[in-house]
Amino acid sequence: MSAAMLTDRNHYWRWIWLAFLVNLALFPAEALHAQIQKIRISTSSRSNTTVAYYIAVSKGFFREKGFDVELIQTNPRLGAMALMNGDIAFTGSFVSTVRGILQGLPLKIVLVALPKGVYYLIVRPEIKDVQDLRGKKLGVSTLKGSDHLVAEEMLRAKGFNPALLQPIGLGDTSVRAQAIATGVVDVVALSPPHDLIAQQMGAKVLAGPPEVGMPASGMITSDRLLKENPQMVKRGLRALLKANRFIDENRQETTRVLLHWVKQTPEIAARSYDLELKTIRKDGQMTDAEIESFIERLGDKKRPLDEVRDFSLVRQALKELEANK
């Protein structure tokens, strides 16, 4: 081979190597996944409390971390089973899933988005006093779910024994709003925007919001995924943390995204943001004291906190986000 040919060949490979280095500089490591990973994330209802997931999907934060996310709505118990089986990667269903953890399911809370969900006790228009609810029907998402527990707490605060009610499992928040409006049930606990939607259909507010709300949204995953693929979990956490910050700093765009995902008026979406979403936890964590209080209120079997939550990865993700500012 001649010297000229060797020189040309060397130049060729230098250009290839230079192009490779330029690509590395232009694209962050997380964007260089050989293939976008398809994952499923479950939620128990389509409501404003799921806003962090809506933002992370709509603004491309999950895709930035190498995920093509499908949000699916399912019963929390089925979501927990799917989580353990590996059919979904994460769930945003919070209270019912935490109850499963306390009963021994191998799952962990890895992020908290809304530590205090806002609820209103909504009743039929013919209910004039809380004592009129004796023997009536309480519509709930699932038995002992967050809305059920908060409804009982608000009723006790007004001097009413919730054991005098008949709880009826109805599922999704929009279904419960429709049920109170049509008289299928007599009382429900609803979060924004559905409390206002129910009022527009003739129902009225009896109480709320509670002084101490239940955690309404977060991220829970399986012990197996935490052990086998912590980097995947951390990428999901970084996407949600980025969404939480976006929500805190962008009222107008957040309400626009809410209008895309949840049927409501712009005025109701804006009210929901001001009332509830401004409490979002940008660091994605609850203190041990807050979690202990939460578990106490659930009234279930206690487990050591290290078997309930693991915030080690979200702390790492926070540091990485700060470093990349």
Rank of each mutant, 00 (worst) to 15 (best):
G66W: 07
G208T: 01
N10I: 12
R271Q: 05
Y120R: 06
Y119D: 12
D223S: 09
E64A: 15
T182H: 00
L277F: 01
E30F: 04
D283V: 14
S146K: 01
L313A: 15
V187N: 11
A3P: 10
A31E: 14
M214D: 08
G79E: 08
R256G: 05
S58C: 12
D87W: 03
L321H: 01
L226G: 02
I88M: 00
D87Y: 07
K325P: 01
V187F: 04
T182S: 09
L24H: 00
F246T: 06
V140K: 03
S141H: 10
G92P: 00
Q252C: 02
V314A: 15
V175R: 13
P28V: 05
S174Y: 12
A29C: 00
D68I: 06
R224M: 04
N244G: 00
L305K: 08
Y54K: 11
F67M: 06
N85P: 00
I122F: 01
L71D: 09
A216Q: 09
V130T: 02
A270K: 09
I72Y: 05
L111F: 11
G135M: 15
N161K: 12
L313K: 15
K128W: 01
T182K: 08
P230I: 15
K325N: 02
L155I: 06
Q316G: 06
A243F: 01
D147L: 00
V130M: 09
N250T: 08
S2K: 11
Q285H: 11
I168D: 00
M286E: 14
P125C: 04
D195W: 08
T142D: 10
W261T: 06
A181R: 00
S96K: 11
H33D: 07
H33Y: 04
Q264R: 04
I122V: 12
R303M: 04
M201F: 07
Q231F: 05
V184W: 14
T265H: 00
P304M: 11
S141D: 13
G236R: 13
K301V: 10
E211N: 05
R124N: 02
L259T: 14
V188Q: 09
W13Q: 07
V308K: 11
G236Q: 11
I41N: 06
G92N: 05
F294S: 02
K234L: 15
P162V: 11
A113N: 12
A203P: 03
P266A: 03
L277G: 00
M214C: 04
A56S: 10
D172Q: 14
A31Y: 06
I39M: 09
V314G: 13
E249Y: 02
Y54M: 13
V188L: 05
L111Q: 13
R271E: 08
M219Q: 10
A56T: 09
I127M: 03
L26C: 02
R77C: 03
L155E: 08
T254D: 11
T173H: 10
L155S: 09
R297S: 07
G135W: 15
A177R: 07
L190C: 02
P304C: 10
W15F: 11
L21A: 01
R271I: 04
I268N: 00
